[in-house]
Design a protein around this nucleic acid. Structure first.
Lengths: 225, 225
DNA sequence: CGTTTGGCAAGAGCAGTGCTCTCGTTGTGG
DNA sequence: CCACAACGAGAGCACTGCTCTTGCCAAACG
């Protein structure tokens, strides 16, 4: 039994080591991750890597899940600091941005254009919603504590579509708040991606953090925070 | 002289044909464009393509410029229809979204994560600002016609950084309006990319257009429109 | 203790890629 | 008319993802 555990542990360590080297390659060379190059760095044959990941896409999927978890944890950790909902909101947004600046290629992997021919498996959708849920929970807290006043309900078909989502994911939250949460999350993604992918080319150079906060305060305003 | 023109015209036609086939490959196979496959489709050797484009990145750059122009023109054309600034604003946003839905891989090419190792040359930055300038001009028109009231000036270092940009690109527009324009543009990019890249996974299915309009009305609100 | 089984690594090999170089051909400008 | 530049084709290099076969070594079983 301990032998089997040992085998499994060695295998897990090897898997983790492959992912680690792959992450390093990702950080330096960009998204076109070469499985052979990773194998070379590990001093093993490229075919040996296939014992641990069935394909290059499988390795990418593992990295994607890790990245979702990493950015989610960074945001959650930052959000514990603030006292008011708005402070927690902004702290989470800044944490996401800073994680993205520190790990640009991993950000591109999860929130950039999908890798060609790559279809995200089911395993990725749960960790993908972590930041979204954090924003939603922050907003829900603001509603429950009365910091944010109740707002007119939304009208429109998409509001009806969002109602069951609201029930299952964030019970008690009106559909409008769910819509605002998703919209704010998209705004966050847009702000980070645009800055990271070079859209604000030489317009704001020094105080990008300040401009980002301006945008996220706007997102909070739209969400009723 | 007409001979030289003929040579140049044949060359231009060939260049256009290569781009056309490449665009078709882009639409079906995704972003990992294969120069050899394009050459095969054209019935010529892969090395012959290099007479027209120095590298695969050069071909991508040409496609990127075309894509920027296409989405810019779609937005500008749509914006001519509306009567009020808000109508023109929303029409432009919807046009951008619809262009992106019709040409997802080209959208990914210009607003998704940058292709690994690819550095956007100077030729791309002018057409890239076309949609941004349209939004800015719409906002400027609203200010000048008095539809949108004047707002408190921004404070913060990024506002100072944006002041010279305002002078050169959209003269007469306060720094805050420039900041709002860029923020709105990022919001537009975020909303379109998130929808296109599958971030709203099974939450809103039917009325995505309505949800998008909700977001863009929010962006207009933040911009003071 | 001997044998069999199963996980692992290595190597060769296939089909594909971007890109370069060389070698003919062809058409144009002086 | 002829030199020259532009062009297309083909071979070739180094690389990729992935598969298949072979050999190895430790664990499990009789």
């Amino acid at each position: 039994m301990s032998a089997a555990n040992l085998r499994a542990r060695v295998r897990a360590e090897m898997t983790e080591e492959i992912k680690s080297v792959a992450r390093r390659h990702l950080a330096t060379d960009g998204a076109n991750l070469s499985l052979r190059a990773v194998a070379r760095d590990l001093g093993m044959a490229s075919s040996a890597v296939y014992r641990y990941f069935a394909s290059r896409d499988d390795l990418l999927t593992a990295l994607i899940i890790d990245a979702y978890d990493a950015v989610g944890e960074a945001a959650e950790h930052a959000a514990t600091g603030g006292t008011t909902p708005l402070e927690r909101w902004l702290a989470a947004c800044h944490a996401v941005r800073e994680w993205a600046l520190a790990n640009p290629h991993e950000w591109a992997l999860i929130y950039g254009s999908p890798v060609p021919g790559y279809q995200a498996p089911q395993d990725t959708i749960v960790p993908a919603t972590r930041v979204l849920l954090l924003l939603g929970a922050t907003l829900a807290g603001a509603y429950q504590s009365g910091v944010a006043p109740a707002r007119e309900p939304l009208q429109g078909r998409f509001a009806e579509e969002l109602t069951p989502i609201a029930e299952s994911f964030l019970p008690g939250l009106p559909a409008r708040a769910v819509a605002d949460t998703i919209a704010a999350f998209f705004q966050l993604c847009g702000a980070v991606s645009s800055e990271l992918f070079g859209q604000l080319n030489k317009s704001v150079e020094e105080d990008r953090r300040g401009f980002f906060e301006y945008q996220m305060r706007g997102a909070a305003t739209l969400a009723g925070l």
